[in-house]
Amino acid sequence: MKRLARVSAMLSALLLCLLLTMTAAFAASVQDGAKLLKAEQKAALEQKIKQVEDAHQVKIGIVTMKSLKGAPPGKTANSILDKQYAGGKNGSIVLLLAMDSRDYHVSTDSVMRTIITDDGGFPHLKEAFLPHLKDNDFYGAFDAYVDGTDEMLAYYEREGEPYDPYNEFSPLALVIAIALGVLAAILVNSVLEGMMSNVAYAPSADAYLEDGSVSLTENNDTFLYTTETRRPKPKKSSGGGGGGSHGGGGGKF
C-alpha cells in the first residue's frame, strides 16, 4: 500500500512538472490583460520576440494587468516567469505592468540574471523603456524592452561577460578631459587678469596693507571645546527581483 502511494506521488509530481513545462511552452509572449496594445502592435511585438528568442535561445514575456489586487509586483512577476516562461536554455525574462498602481517589474531567472545583471544590466534596460512608460507610450516601451534585452544578450555572446556601463568608461579619456579643462581654466584666468588694470604682482603680503592700518598689541589663542557627532552606518539594503534566484527590479511609472 505504501509502495503504491509513493508511486502515485511520483506520478503526480511528474504530471505537475509536465503541465508547467507545457504551460511555459504555449504561453503567449505578449499577454495584454490591460488592453494597452492594438492588434497590429501586439502581433509586431510577438514577431520580434520570436526572432530574439530563436536567436539567443531564451524566453521573453510581456504581461499587462489591470490590477495586482494588493499582491507584491516582484513576487507576482517571479511567479509568472516560473509558471509561464520557464525553460529558456539561456534564461528567461518577463516585464510585468500593473495599470491601477502604475507598477512595473522585470523578473529574470537564475540564468538570465548572470547575463542581465541587477547592478549593470537592469538599470540599462530600465533607461531604455521607462521614459516611454511615463509618457504612456506602451508599444514604444515594450519595443525598447525587447531591443534592450536583445542588445545585452548579443553583448554577452560577443564579449563573454555581462553588459556593464562602466566597461565603456575610459580612464585615458577622463585624464585628457581633466587636462583640457585645467588648461582652459588657466587660459581664461590669465586673460581676465590681464584685463584688470588694478591688479599687479606683489612680492610679499605687506604690500597689500597700508602703513599704520593694522596694529597688533596682543596675540592669544583660547581653546573652547570640541564637538563630536556619531551616526550609525546605514545597512546596505538588498535589491533585485524579490529574493531567491530571481533578479531584475521594478518601480513606479
Rank of each mutant, 00 (worst) to 15 (best):
A28P: 08
T23I: 08
K236C: 08
L68A: 08
P162Q: 04
S8A: 15
N189C: 12
Y145N: 00
L172K: 15
G251R: 03
P73H: 02
L180M: 13
G247R: 01
M1K: 14
A24D: 06
K83P: 05
P123W: 01
V94F: 00
K134D: 04
A34C: 06
G160Y: 04
G240I: 08
R158Y: 12
E127Y: 09
N167P: 06
G251E: 04
G243Q: 05
H56Y: 07
L14Q: 11
L209N: 14
K83E: 13
I186L: 15
A34F: 04
A24K: 04
S213N: 10
S107M: 03
L16T: 08
F142M: 02
E159K: 13
T23F: 10
F253H: 00
N167W: 10
L95C: 01
S190N: 10
G242C: 01
T149W: 01
T226H: 13
I176Q: 15
Q47W: 06
N90R: 06
K89E: 08
F142A: 00
L45I: 05
K233P: 07
T108G: 01
S110V: 13
F129H: 00
A207C: 11
Y225F: 12
G243T: 05
M22L: 14
N78R: 05
C17I: 13
L18Q: 11
Q47H: 10
D82A: 15
S197N: 12
A71Y: 07
Y163T: 05
E159A: 13
V191Y: 11
E193S: 10
E168C: 10
L130H: 03
I49L: 05
G242N: 00
T21A: 15
K2M: 14
T23W: 12
E218W: 13
N90W: 03
Q47R: 07
T222I: 11
L96V: 05
C17L: 15
K126E: 03
K42P: 04
L224D: 13
C17A: 14
A86E: 12
L133G: 00
Y155T: 09
K38T: 11
S79K: 11
G194R: 10
L45T: 02
L81I: 05
D206V: 11
F253Q: 01
A28L: 08
Y104P: 02
V106Q: 02
E228P: 02
P72K: 01
L130S: 03
G249N: 00
Q41A: 05
Y139D: 05
K235E: 15
S110Q: 14
